[in-house]
Design a protein around this nucleic acid. Structure first.
Lengths: 224, 224
DNA sequence: ATGAATATTTAGATTTGGCTAAAAGTTAAT
DNA sequence: ATTAACTTTTAGCCAAATCTAAATATTCAT
């Protein structure tokens, strides 16, 4: 059960795209993987014969149970390495993605399980994404995009969409980071901007563009 | 200046073989890399056009300055990862080689330099091999195989050849490890066994097979 | 419901790294 | 100085992953 780095990347990309849409199109994959539709078609045929996905000509793909498991184990490796790079090697969370893209293809399972232990079994990577366990199970995070949040509900920032230097600059300025608690006070339909309020601060407005890049979890109502 | 894992492996193998012989033969390389002489010839041509080595048909290869530098940077990565696996992830030194073979091809230079810092700038890997610095310079170790050692010279074990569980068992039993000081007292030409003496112990005999797997450095004569 | 626009697949090539079998070069022993 | 034994190279092929260009499906708008 060993797959090439390229195949692993296909499975991972399909997994991520499936979060948005049940069935993934050839073109969407080509774009995600920065390749051509023709190459994607070729690869899908290969992955199909390996029973990693369900694929019928012109009809898009879905991962099989096995394919999903492989994808999750790669995501596990990616996120654990990211955590290592940030926590142990002191990289900034915005610069670790590329390195993790390479490290995730290192095959040894024993290595990644030991790494997880060394890191103290973290639950999420530095971007707030949950880390699948050693069997490839991932806690359902019930993340919600800020733009879709219920007015006035309390929530905690759990994830940032694109981690560019630009977004980081803005978030730093506004004092928003993973773990920040906030409420959406108002939505303006004119430009889809949102008025939000951090605890102990006066409310301010953020653009639709920023809101779409912020993911939150509803704060659990106090237990009992 | 990015080379495929395969090319990196060729350069590394040539570097190691050059420690024994100034010029490396096609066959020796084929054996070291577990491939065929024909494949080696093909690859040598490619590496030559990239000016990583000096090669003339039927005459063997040598690395160029650039080739040697690339090889040393891979060896640097290999040894730092081995150190990490043993010191931080608690693997045994005999089980880390394969994992390091993969990790050494992860490209980021920044990553390996940070890793080195995180590890506290170790000077040798868990097998006692010196770690090249970030410019690809390696301290000349002047290691000598125990079987070739001058009679009665004082030396320190600096390296063990094949790190199998079997050799480890034997070395543990004899109380020999990296750093152990010893002298060769006698060589028996009949079976090439050696009589050696550790400090404060009575001399004992070791087989040719074991001697060939032990490398030492001559102890410097007391300075001045 | 049909034709234009879009999406997808096929066909044929390329690159990288590897293989086998056969040819050619080198070395060593008499 | 030849020839046998060997090493090395050449020639032709294969597989993986990619590409471009052409062909074919699908979808959407009227």
């Amino acid at each position: 059960m060993k797959y090439s780095a390229s195949k692993e990347n296909y499975l991972k990309a399909i997994f991520h795209l499936q979060q948005e849409q049940a069935s993934v199109s050839t073109n969407a994959l080509a774009q995600a993987l920065q390749t051509t539709a023709a190459s994607v078609t070729d690869m899908l045929k290969k992955l199909k014969t390996q029973k990693l996905l369900h694929y019928e000509k012109y009809k898009g793909v879905k991962l099989t149970t096995e394919g999903r498991k492989v994808a999750l184990l790669i995501i596990r490796k990616h996120r654990l390495w990211e955590y290592f790079l940030v926590q142990k090697l002191s990289f900034g969370w915005e610069e670790v993605h590329e390195m993790a893209e390479e490290l995730e293809h290192v095959t040894s399972k024993k290595l990644i399980d030991r790494l997880e232990e060394f890191l103290g079994f973290p639950e999420t990577d530095p971007h707030g994404d949950p880390i699948p366990d050693l069997l490839g199970r991932m806690p359902v995070s019930k993340q919600v995009n800020l733009a879709n949040l219920t007015i006035n509900a309390s929530c905690t920032v759990s994830n940032i969409g694109d981690q560019t230097a630009e977004i980081m600059e803005l978030l730093n300025h506004k004092n928003i980071r993973i773990g920040t608690k906030l409420q959406v006070k108002k939505k303006f339909s004119f430009d889809n901007s949102l008025e939000i309020k951090l605890s102990n601060q006066t409310a301010f407005t953020i653009s639709e563009h920023l809101a779409k890049n912020l993911f939150v979890k509803y704060d659990d109502p106090p237990e009992k």
